[in-house]
């Protein structure tokens, strides 16, 4: 296991500089579902250009955490600041943050009644008021980037899972987001298709995109992440640079989790 680990670390994409500028600042954030305390005293600062992988057992609140960042979930206590804008219940504020923050979902959530191209141009045209022609050029640019320009006029239902997830990434990129959130982007995919999606994400990371990924792809974490965060029962239990995190975990809960997922 150490062999593969060193091999992967040597292939790390660390050329990117992390700037001092703060992209996301979460201070003492708490969230409840009814009386159930899902997120407890979360403090997290993400710098521009940072790639963070969040892992943890199911129900640990990792998806909820990143969904709070673009206000798909409401938090009840504490503050979240994205790109200098404080997340409040003001709808204008929320829409502004959402158009700056791209998100990819586990089940892709492409719009099935629109073609791939229309999926990608919809938000730029209606939210950014980009002229249709320009939006289509941008969309084709990003579809080429995720390597499926030839599917532009098909419907999502005609594509494979991996292709759909890459379209979803392109759709988010068309809004020129400054931050990308990934909510288990490969969990619903066949093993063969995971690689094509991860390759796209790695390429994105190399370009310096600020990324928060909820994922169990530990190889991806080693290769791309600046920081790995381990969550359990609504708390951040441990965070560290990937090498230290995987080779020398501190808490018992982390050790147990790592032994479970890397056990075979």
């Amino acid at each position: 296991m150490t062999d593969t680990a060193t091999e992967m670390t040597s292939g790390r994409t660390d050329q990117m500089q992390v700037s001092d500028e703060v992209a996301i600042e979460i201070v003492n954030m708490n969230k409840w579902y009814g009386t159930f305390h899902v997120l407890r005293d979360i403090d997290l600062t993400v710098h521009r250009g940072e790639r963070i992988v969040i892992c943890g057992p199911s129900g640990s609140g990792k998806s909820t955490l990143i969904r709070c960042i673009n206000a798909l979930e409401e938090h009840q206590k504490g503050s979240i600041t994205v790109d200098g804008t404080v997340l409040s219940s003001d709808l204008k504020n929320i829409d502004k943050i959402r158009s700056e923050v791209g998100m990819c979902f586990q089940h892709f959530n492409l719009f099935p009644h629109l073609t791939i191209l229309e999926n990608c141009t919809l938000a730029p045209i209606w939210v950014r008021k980009t002229p249709k022609k320009e939006a289509e050029e941008t969309a084709m640019h990003f579809l080429e980037k995720v390597k499926i320009p030839e599917q532009a006029n098909k419907y999502p239902g005609q594509l494979s899972g991996g292709q759909q997830q890459r379209v979803a990434i392109a759709r988010s990129l068309c809004m020129r987001p400054r931050i990308m959130l990934f909510d288990e982007p490969t969990s619903a995919l066949d093993p063969e298709m995971i690689k094509e999606v991860l390759d796209t994400m790695i390429e994105l990371a190399q370009e310096g995109m600020t990324m928060l990924c909820v994922t169990h792809e530990m190889g991806f974490a080693r290769q791309v992440a600046n920081r790995v965060i381990f969550m359990d029962q609504g708390q951040i239990v441990e965070q560290n640079e990937p090498e230290a995190f995987f080779n020398n975990p501190q808490s018992d809960r982390t050790k147990l989790f790592l032994s479970q997922i890397l056990g075979h």
């Binding site: 502004k96 959402r98 791209g102 089940h107 959530n109 492409l110 919809l122 938000a123």
Partner: peptide
């Protein structure tokens, strides 16, 4: 409709 459709629309910044 799956909830994901609402979330995808929201996350793109559509009002």
């Amino acid at each position: 409709l799956p909830k994901g459709q609402y979330e995808a629309a929201d996350s793109l910044g559509l009002d």
